[in-house]
Amino acid sequence: MSTLLNDWCIFCEGKAYFDKSHFLALFKVHSSLPEITKALSYFPQADSLVLRVNEVIQAGTLEDNLYLCSTIESSDFELLQKAKLWLQAQASFCKALGDDELYRICQRAKLLYGSKDQFNDYDKLAVPSNWVLELVGDQVRDCMLLNTEQEYALFEALYGVAADYYLAWYMGQPLIKLDFDFRSYFDFWRLGGIGYLSKDKFFVCRR
């Protein structure tokens, strides 16, 4: 019986073609270390990719969830400290790219902790969080190492782990020639953090 991993292997070997969305669940279905190692063996920097993907998988659970959710417990203070570092990473990136407006927004934003219910519709609005995501996403696409169908499909599979672009870029960072601290996002995510940037606040809550 064919498995998603088998499909992935023949796709990477050029023996068959699949739309990249076919592999959205690749690392949710095949999440053991040997399976992750096999899936990533087709790419340069494979060892680094395996370490990152396995690190993320081990930091979360799929139990009763459609996407991977973090399982690490932390205090509110620790979560806010990681949120601050993540916000600083965004500010530094915006400054480096010369986006003064977003840099100033990140710089002056005040941390505000609350419950998830308070922010349920926040990410649906046209807000600085989405502007920064678009800015980073454009740079990631311009700085991908291979620009092959297999690489695009890999990032689709990485996104499918948690439906999270920043987390996908953290896992796939060895294939991105971009000076950006995605680890600060992973450290925030693994504590269950969600952050929404407004024009003067960085709202933080738990998943």
Rank of each mutant, 00 (worst) to 15 (best):
A126D: 14
Y152V: 15
L175V: 13
F77T: 14
L133D: 09
V204Y: 01
Y196T: 14
G160I: 04
Q81H: 03
G14S: 07
L191W: 05
N120G: 09
D121L: 15
L125H: 10
Y152M: 11
W86H: 03
Y185L: 01
A91F: 02
A91S: 04
S74G: 10
K124V: 08
H22E: 04
L178D: 04
S70G: 11
S74E: 09
K124H: 10
F203Q: 10
D100S: 12
D76M: 12
A157T: 04
S198C: 05
M144Y: 02
D7P: 00
Y42Q: 03
N120T: 15
G172N: 04
I105N: 00
A96V: 07
R52Y: 05
F93E: 02
F180I: 04
S21M: 15
E156A: 06
S48I: 12
G192W: 04
K199W: 14
C143D: 07
T3N: 00
Y122I: 10
F11R: 00
S198I: 08
K38V: 06
C69T: 12
N54P: 05
L97Q: 13
Q81Y: 03
F203R: 07
E151V: 11
G60W: 11
N120M: 15
A157E: 01
N54G: 05
L49F: 03
R183I: 06
C205R: 07
Q58M: 10
D7N: 09
Q139P: 01
T61E: 05
M1Q: 07
K201C: 10
L158Y: 03
L24C: 05
G172T: 09
D76K: 15
A96H: 13
K38P: 01
D121E: 13
W131A: 04
D7M: 07
S92Y: 04
V140Y: 03
S115Q: 14
R190D: 02
I57W: 07
V161K: 02
K201T: 13
A109H: 03
N120W: 15
E13Y: 13
V132M: 05
K20M: 14
P44M: 09
